[in-house]
Design a protein around this nucleic acid. Structure first.
Lengths: 117, 117
DNA sequence: ATTACATATGAATATATGTTCATATGTAAT
DNA sequence: ATTACATATGAACATATATTCATATGTAAT
């Protein structure tokens, strides 16, 4: 017959306090999640794997990944915004390549986890 | 006046062929993207950071993360499905903890990238 | 058995996100 | 200037996903 709305009491107050102190800032967590979002799509992951091998133009990427030029171009924009790829122009063709050594490390750690399942 | 719909010719055939051979299977890429999806949400990232410190129950997680018990519970289900957390029951309380050493490594690599921007 | 409470879960809603289509931009060649 | 083509981009659409709300389940205590 209780009329309370106790969503959730703290069960272990000291532990909660301790963990809260060690938590990173919200903005940091947000940025980190944003970074992992880039890896969280199979089209982008294919692009990344392709670029791990070779500097590639948009058109070749579309062929390798198996989708349209437009889709690749949209995804490259996200990768650019996250500073994961860089590019250079050569006439009409634009070549993309990976911009950061962490990328392969992140991908490798992820694939280790997958392979051990 | 051309009536062709050349979406995208292969520009560098030899390179495309070479990179294609080195590409992982689609299923692997898909699984990898699925894994990174788990890290690609700030609520789950907060849960992960909290669990890096300490084994925690759902209720305490809700307080630390700053959301409802239900939201935490839903997210823990995803983390369970990806084999990233394990749990043990102690009476009414269920304690969650990280299930894999790769998790901290993946998070650390990601945060290195963030911090260098 | 009934009450309390920690957790789980289904359905609904709102929002985010990827692809497609049409079109624009930029560069080179004629 | 005009044509060709590699790439970029805006809008529309479809799908995925996170949270909320209500409610169910499981455990312990009375």
């Amino acid at each position: 017959m209780e009329e309370e709305f106790l969503e959730c009491n703290i069960l272990h107050e000291d532990i909660v306090k301790k963990v809260k102190q060690k938590m990173p800032e919200d903005a940091f967590i947000y940025d980190l999640a944003e970074l992992f979002k880039v890896f969280a799509d199979s089209t982008r992951m294919k692009i990344i794997y392709a670029l791990l091998e070779e500097e590639l133009c948009v058109c070749d990427l579309a062929n390798i990944v198996g989708t349209t030029q437009s889709a690749i171009s949209h995804q490259l924009r996200l990768l650019k915004q996250s500073k994961l790829v860089k590019f250079r122009r050569e006439g009409k063709v634009i070549f993309y390549s990976l911009d950061d050594e962490h990328i392969s490390q992140i991908v490798m750690k992820g694939s280790e986890h997958i392979e051990e399942l």
